[in-house]
Design a protein around this nucleic acid. Sequence first.
DNA 1: TCCTTGGCGAGAGCACCGCTCTCGTTTCGA
DNA 2: TCGAAACGAGAGCGGTGCTCTCGCCAAGGA
Lengths: 239, 239
Amino acid sequence: MPASKTARQRAREDITAEILAAARARLAEAGPGELSLRAVARDVGMVSSAVYRYYPSRNDLLTALLIAAYDELGEAAEAADDAVDDRDDHLGRWTAVCVATRAWSLTHPYDYALLYGSPVPGYAAPQDTVGPATRVIVRLVTIIVAAHQAGATSPVAPSIAPAGVEDAVADAIEFVRVLGNPEHADLPEITTRTIMAWTTIFGTLSFELFGHLVGSVSDYDAYFAQVISRLAADLGLPA
Amino acid sequence: MPASKTARQRAREDITAEILAAARARLAEAGPGELSLRAVARDVGMVSSAVYRYYPSRNDLLTALLIAAYDELGEAAEAADDAVDDRDDHLGRWTAVCVATRAWSLTHPYDYALLYGSPVPGYAAPQDTVGPATRVIVRLVTIIVAAHQAGATSPVAPSIAPAGVEDAVADAIEFVRVLGNPEHADLPEITTRTIMAWTTIFGTLSFELFGHLVGSVSDYDAYFAQVISRLAADLGLPA
DNA sequence: TCCTTGGCGAGAGCACCGCTCTCGTTTCGA
DNA sequence: TCGAAACGAGAGCGGTGCTCTCGCCAAGGA
């Protein structure tokens, strides 16, 4: 009977999820570097060596946390976009995704640090994480490309075209290819612009969360609103 | 005799510096989270408890590393700017500082992680670090403000002025005040723009160093050149 | 000059960590 | 039914940050 699960399989899945939940709870209160497998084991009432039956190493547990956090962030961003009634209000959708991204980051600072901070010592994110990791940027590119295809945009800044631009954006086009509309003259331009904008958003959040703006910015809400507003303008979204 | 140093004082300074040098050497090969005070002690031929005579805790040692790294980066950036002969070639100076920042970051990835990655667990950068930390951004603002004062710029993107902009840039004006020219109509505008550009540069470097661009960007050199070129255009520097 | 003070290095020790191995026990499946 | 696999517990290894105590020795005042 391959379809039905035995009691042991169900128990294994339950305990695996329980360990992950305990780890997530700990991550809500301390950074990824402080996450101790032994402490998680204590939380679920196990001895540390028993946890190794479910996660072969601390890094594997971190990977599971990474995927969960990426999915949660992607879910939040996509939900914020989907909640915009007027699908042609591209500025509204752009703003909603950016605001939702910041909101999630502020409420999950340690998850954010796990996703976008310096890699945990000796840890390299495996390939399973690239899918969930790109959900936000894929959605942003979707919105901006849709805006340009609808013609609801002002022209973006002219291409400067230094040496090697085509090389640099070559793989960026993959985003558009995945999204289904590979053939449009200025798509690489606008895709690269969107990636740059996403980079700016990430940098702004990192600076805010990691304390690099203390003394330079007083009102973070207003500053972030200004940043995403100007990025939207750079991307050709009319105000 | 308060002026001359006793042998003990000199020895203390030497050993303090020797420990710091050993820690920097270790940081060149592994991330900040992996930096072990005991390992550093072994490198300098001490027992671990002896190191505590010079650095009260591991965090204090990290702070010393932090300041040293910030200074080294600031030094590299300023030197690159100073090396530009034509002081009115603001685009050249901007590019030089950005390129030097990236070069230092690529050759000192773990130092970069210490400076701009997620804070080390349980570690909060003390106030002594803000001075060295702002050297690069201060120099960038200096260049851009000089360009605008010299009139050698095209107009920047018009201010969008959402609610709270003045609040947001209030402290940013401090940069300009420090630099000596507080009274100019669009200085807050251009200062905020410069901070945004610096944020983008930081985000780009973090993405590159922390591996968030694998699969999206193939030629990092060309991509970075494109980023700083477009940022320069956004800042009004003519091409 | 003596002698006290204080800085110094070494060592032991504490509590914690990731991880491995072994040992009974329980459960599944052939 | 019975062997194999999975499981939880425990001990143990080497590592960590940090504290405390112990002798040693130089610096400086009496």
